[in-house]
């Protein structure tokens, strides 16, 4: 008996959910950046010397909390959407027997879905693993260590120092934004770097594979 209709409906659901995640993540991501920017705006001068420490202490907890909350939010929505779609396509009987996590476990790809986000490397770790070490000193006219200890000794006035600090602050902001974009939205060209978007897409792919597999 033909099952093409069910297959098409499952793919409709999968594509629509991927599209929704793509759009919503881009709509909500600026909320995280706003929070991070507030921290960077308050970044003390001495923190420029140990920027990775600042990122680990101040930025990472915010990012971790935000990503975990978003992950839970998306998972809950996907669970609801999956149940509705399964009731429509596979029928209410089967729908009652399978949960979102069951479908994930049954999916072709395994493992990624149970990786707790808290355990994944955040901005600091990500920077190291991806080779994108904070090399932003070169972007600033005045190196960070000079801002911390040397500007006064050089006899530069407060306006120059303020300008240099702002340059450094902006370069930190730019770099953190880049890393967070990779971390939250992901990059299809760098799938090896874990991201919230990439993880959700993999989960959806796995669920689709499981649903299609059950039809055969």
């Amino acid at each position: 008996m033909s099952d093409e209709i069910e297959r098409a409906e499952i793919l409709d659901w999968w594509s629509a959910e991927r599209g929704r995640i793509f759009v919503e993540l881009r709509e909500r991501f600026p909320l995280l950046l706003l929070k991070i920017d507030q921290e960077i705006d308050q970044m003390p001068i001495k923190a420029f010397v140990n920027r990775s420490g600042f990122v680990a202490d101040k930025i990472n907890p915010i990012v971790r909390e935000w990503i975990e909350a978003e992950y839970r939010r998306y998972s809950a929505k996907l669970e609801t959407s999956l149940k509705e779609s399964m009731a429509e396509v596979e029928g209410t009987a089967l729908c009652g027997k399978w949960s979102y996590s069951d479908m994930l476990t049954a999916g072709a790809a395994t493992g990624f879905s149970v990786v707790p986000f808290a355990a994944l490397p955040f901005v600091g770790g990500l920077i190291v693993t991806s080779g994108l070490v904070f090399t932003t000193a070169s972007l600033a006219v005045v190196p960070a260590n000079m801002v911390g200890v040397g500007i006064g000794a050089l006899g530069l006035g407060p306006s120059v120092r303020g300008w240099a600090v702002e340059r450094l602050r902006n370069s930190v902001r730019t770099k953190v934004h880049e890393d967070l974009t990779l971390r939250v939205l992901g990059d299809p060209n760098q799938p090896e770097i874990p991201s919230l978007g990439g993880t959700l897409f993999k989960e959806l792919d796995s669920i689709m594979a499981a649903r299609l597999g059950k039809l055969t």
Binding site: W14, S15, A16, R18, G19, I21, F22, V23, P188, F201
Partner: peptide, 8 residues
């Protein structure tokens, strides 16, 4: 080509 790929 799911919707997100089309948009991207």
């Amino acid at each position: 080509f799911p919707k997100d790929v089309l948009m991207d």
